[in-house]
Simulated assay, not measured.
Amino acid sequence: MASSADISLALVAGEVSGDMLAGRLMAGLRPHLPNARFSGIGGPRMIEQGLVSSVPMDTLTVRGLFEVIPRYREIKGIQNKLRDQLIAERPAAFIGADYPGFNLGLEEQLRAAGIPTVHFVSPQIWAWRGGRIKKIKRAVSHMLVIFPFEEQIYRDAGVPVTYIGHPLAEMIPLQPDVAGARRSLGLAGDARVVTVMPGSRMGEIKYLTEPFMRAVRILAQRDPQLKFVMPMAGERQKALFTELAAKAGLSDVPVQLVDGQSHTAIAAADAVLVASGTATLEVALFKKPMVIAYKVFEASWQIMRHMGYMPWIGLPNILSREFVVPEFLQHAARPEALADAVWRQLEDTAGRERLAQRFTDMHHSLLRNSAAESAEAVLRVIGKAT
């Protein structure tokens, strides 16, 4: 039997959330495969666990249907080069962390070449593009899902599947330390705080900076004592945000920018204005009321809105199967509407308490030892389960 030093695993993440998921999986594998080699594409959390990344993860990060077109040749070239490299090297398995547009195509080719494939996080086939289940069945040897309702979808389709819980449910405390978070950010304990999260992707920042900042200006005029905190995912995001705010004449809007520290900023909040995506689940796990917004390139929106199967886009609403928090999509994401919705949440004490209980129940439903369970599934795939 080969030792762990002889085992290589390939992984690809294309965004911050995938980097976090794959990093935890790698940490779960290390006790079982202490000398295994990890290669592929990933971000800082995967690199911290020993990944040798062939290109910077940011190279793959593109948002929207039409936005990918100018970079299609570059990204396809990266995919083809990695495919050829992995077919030559024959890793024990390939693990795609989310990023389905890139990873599923790569997985299909690798599996056809005899390399086992694991996909970590189901594409949202339950929300849109349900026909992808056929491609998934061809591409994926084993699917790891992070929401309870997804497991039955794959069992019904004949795809081997494991529900591993959501890693964020382990990372975020059941009872957030609001006072500690405010001290960390230099905020008074009795302040009213709104955290503003325009996203970590450049496209999100491009489309949400102006409506979010104009909403902040409206709220600040209603209550000059309100405090606004905006965590920035990195220097590139911060530079783009600053440039766009200046171009829109919004540099004077009173927002405290912080580097990273998104969880601290959420914990400190009374309400959160947030871009649709994984961050909405983070806000829910911190038991905070939120207003969700989503904007993309107009042509992308016209296609996407006809492909959706659900009335919800935010993860808290999808998991609750109802609109527990408001969503404002594309043209509806106007500054006045966003500001009014945040203001209602700030003023509704009873509503915040109801939401906190709802989100506590959600937290419990998602809580598993995801690193251990995902690692065990991968070990079964490569024949190393104990």
Rank of each mutant, 00 (worst) to 15 (best):
L185A: 04
V178T: 14
S200A: 13
T209C: 08
A188D: 15
E170S: 15
A191N: 08
D177S: 12
L208V: 02
R201Q: 06
G199W: 00
S184D: 15
V178P: 01
P173F: 05
Y207L: 10
R183F: 03
P173T: 08
A179W: 01
G189H: 14
P173E: 01
V194P: 13
K206E: 15
L208R: 06
G203C: 08
F212G: 08
Q175I: 10
G203N: 12
A191T: 03
G189F: 08
S200L: 00
E210G: 09
G186M: 01
T209A: 12
D177H: 00
M171G: 03
T195M: 00
A181S: 14
D177L: 08
S200C: 10
R201K: 11
L187F: 02
T195E: 08
Y207R: 01
A181N: 00
G199F: 02
L185R: 06
R182Q: 08
V194E: 06
M197P: 12
L185D: 11
R201V: 00
T209V: 11
G203T: 04
M197G: 12
A181R: 04
R183C: 05
V178Q: 11
F212T: 03
R182M: 14
E204T: 08
R201S: 07
A179L: 04
L187S: 05
M197Q: 06
R183Q: 11
P176A: 11
V193D: 09
Y207N: 07
L185S: 10
R192Y: 07
G180L: 09
A181D: 04
D190S: 12
D190N: 15
A181G: 12
V194F: 01
R182P: 06
R182K: 06
R182W: 13
R183S: 15
R192C: 06
A191C: 04
I205C: 06
A188S: 14
A191P: 07
P176F: 05
D177W: 00
I172A: 10
P173K: 11
S184P: 01
L208Q: 07
A181I: 03
P198W: 02
A191S: 15
E204K: 05
K206M: 14
L185G: 06
I172V: 15
E210N: 03
V193H: 02
R182D: 05
P176G: 08
P176K: 09
P211T: 12
A188V: 06
G180N: 10
V196P: 11
M197T: 13
G199T: 02
R183L: 15
R183D: 09
Q175P: 00
F212S: 09
Y207S: 05
E170P: 02
F212Y: 13
V178M: 11
T195Y: 03
F212Q: 00
G186Q: 06
Q175W: 07
P176T: 11
V196M: 10
V196N: 05
K206C: 12
K206L: 14
G199Q: 02
R201W: 02
R182T: 09
G199R: 04
I172T: 09
G203Y: 04
K206Y: 08
V194G: 11
V193I: 14
R192K: 15
V194W: 01
V178W: 00
Q175R: 14
S200E: 11
I172F: 10
R182V: 13
A191E: 12
A179S: 10
V194K: 11
G189A: 13
P176H: 08
A179H: 10
R182H: 14
L208P: 13
I172H: 09
L185F: 07
K206A: 14
S184K: 04
T209G: 00
